[in-house]
Design a protein around this nucleic acid. Structure first.
Lengths: 334, 334
DNA sequence: CTGAAAGCGCTTACAG
DNA sequence: CTGAAAGCGCTTACAG
């Protein structure tokens, strides 16, 4: 019922081989026939069946995007980045879930050619699964919050470097006592951010004081409790870094509860969620993670693999967060 | 190089037809051969090529999800809803963008069988495109913020009903003067929410007072300006409904600027963004839109179409927002 | 109960 | 320069 290459060939009185050649420009065809073919295409409203094309050529123009947690804040930006570059190359994204009843089918899909390659957000995916995937031979690029040792392309966010940025910003403003409210150390991201804090302190010759460091679950209440404990320190910090914007929201509340003004009495830096940071009062100076860029770079590297343009060993590219200055940071009141 | 049905057939010493039959359970095969086939499958690590399968059967187990604005707040939830039900049926989602250089290819994809059907978020998509799609014959279900007249399945959010809920909540608390800060009336959503406000007022016998109604761009600053103007009314409202959480954030700031406490002096209801509402101080009583449900219902209806289970005229299902009570609303101070 | 064969809609050497 | 034919990896009537 839908029109095929045969219909076009018939309408143009040529062979299907010729139709294919003019459509794909894969071989010289005389102008006369070309014109007849194009006319026939227009007339019949033909467009090629991508499934048949995919079977024949092995190219489906589909890239798999595998992320465990669609509710993660990073998800929309990663998708946008990946889709923007994929679309520019004529590719679409198919959303794959790493677990659940469909996992087998999806892996099969990847292995057997429904998607040409995989962009993988390793967050929430068991390392063994990632390893298996990376060994499966299907082109894969991983997005991660820390460097990995698989021999595949990976784009990693420099979490530690981001926190360094925050510390530097505060130091430049004149702060010397900078507190830290981080996530529970069971998450790699949280650990990396904490490491960045320690590193930056050392780099600037600032003493590390456990009394102004707190670890808490990544919730508003966690931030509230964490900040409260930090404020109870014998000598309270003039600035606070919260490793997440939920933590920051809670910390802000704790500061207000304690009668402290932000940024007049205490400066506050958050992390992650641009939207929340923008809507808080005061608006929050915050670390913006390069999610869009990660998606874009991952797709770019993957496209280089599936096109055969690149076939060397796994590459790693590191992307830095950006510090977005808003109202919540200022010089310390002396 | 990758193993095919032929390899399995050879390993099991049967025909490929038999392999296919035991794999798909499409025909009785003797236990003896069945076992040989399964052994061979295991041994060769075979899994079927979905592209070839798709070409032969016309079923790719792929559903298209077309949304114009991946940065919309609704996007992640819609995807989650759609993916959850799609995955349960063995389907994956491919992300289609309605415009740009890939549009042709994508439409072609849809028309020619790469995806079996389309879930369409009509927000930001020209009505003519939607109409064309709905007439193309490919199974399509639309998600919309207002009822439509295409003869396809559509799931619509009851925007007006949501605002009614908010008004009712405030009326129950004892409020009689309820202000409204809405979006610019050029958006259908904003118009629907405004209509809901008027409706609810009428239903509860409350007078409509233009002095406590403002329209503004959907930004924090818009909300700030809108609320300011409403507060300047000769008789100021005891409660405010903001048709968006950015507007609400701005309104909150305006209220604080005016020395008014929330909810003690003025109650505030927001809309849309669960995360922001949760992190604000006070946390925001807010209308939660049924995004996850929309995605899930849309996928469900689409699956019913592509499976052939449903082939009647277009159905419409309306989903109601939910009011989530948090700290920003209370009885008016008398 | 099992298998040989046609065919889904393309692309691509290979003849002519 | 053009076309007949093989084949991508499956499924599915149809013989036997």
């Amino acid at each position: 019922m839908t029109t095929t290459i045969k219909d076009v060939a018939r309408a143009a009185s040529v062979s299907i081989a010729t139709v294919s050649h003019v459509l794909n420009g894969t071989h010289y065809v005389s102008p006369k026939l070309c014109e007849r073919v194009w006319d026939a295409v227009k007339e019949t409203g033909y467009c090629r069946n991508p499934v048949a094309h995919g079977l024949r050529t092995g190219r489906t123009n589909l890239l798999g995007l595998m992320v465990a947690d669609l509710a993660a804040l990073s998800f929309p930006s990663i998708v946008r980045g990946a889709q923007d570059v994929a679309a520019a190359a004529g590719y679409s994204l198919v959303l794959l879930r790493p677990e659940g009843p469909g996992a087998q089918h999806l892996l099969a899909m990847a292995r057997r050619g429904m998607v040409e390659g995989l962009v993988l957000d390793v967050a929430g995916i068991p390392a063994s699964d990632v390893a298996a995937l990376s060994e499966s031979g299907i082109p894969t690029v991983a997005m991660s919050s820390n460097a990995e040792h698989w021999d595949i392309d990976v784009v990693v966010t420099d979490e530690a470097g981001g926190v360094c940025l925050a510390v530097e910003h505060l130091v430049e403003l004149g702060h010397q006592r900078i507190g830290f409210v981080g996530g529970l150390p069971d998450s790699q991201t949280a650990a990396a951010r904490y490491a960045g804090y320690r590193q930056a302190l050392a780099r600037h010759g600032l003493a590390y004081d456990p009394a102004i460091v707190a670890e808490a679950p990544l919730t508003r209440y966690g931030g509230y409790r964490g900040a409260k404990s930090v404020l109870a320190a014998p000598s309270r910090p003039t600035a606070l870094i919260a490793a997440d914007d939920s933590l920051a929201a809670g910390a802000l509340l704790a500061l207000q509860d304690a009668g402290l003004r932000v940024p007049d009495d205490v400066s506050l830096v958050g992390c992650d969620d641009v939207r929340v940071a923008d809507l808080m009062t005061p608006t929050l100076t915050s670390l913006a993670l390069p999610w869009y860029e990660m998606g874009a770079q991952a797709a770019k590297m993957l496209l280089e693999r599936v096109s055969g343009y690149e076939n060397g060993p796994g590459r790693t590219i590191t992307l830095a967060p950006k510090l977005v200055r808003r109202q919540s940071t200022a010089a310390p009141s002396t």
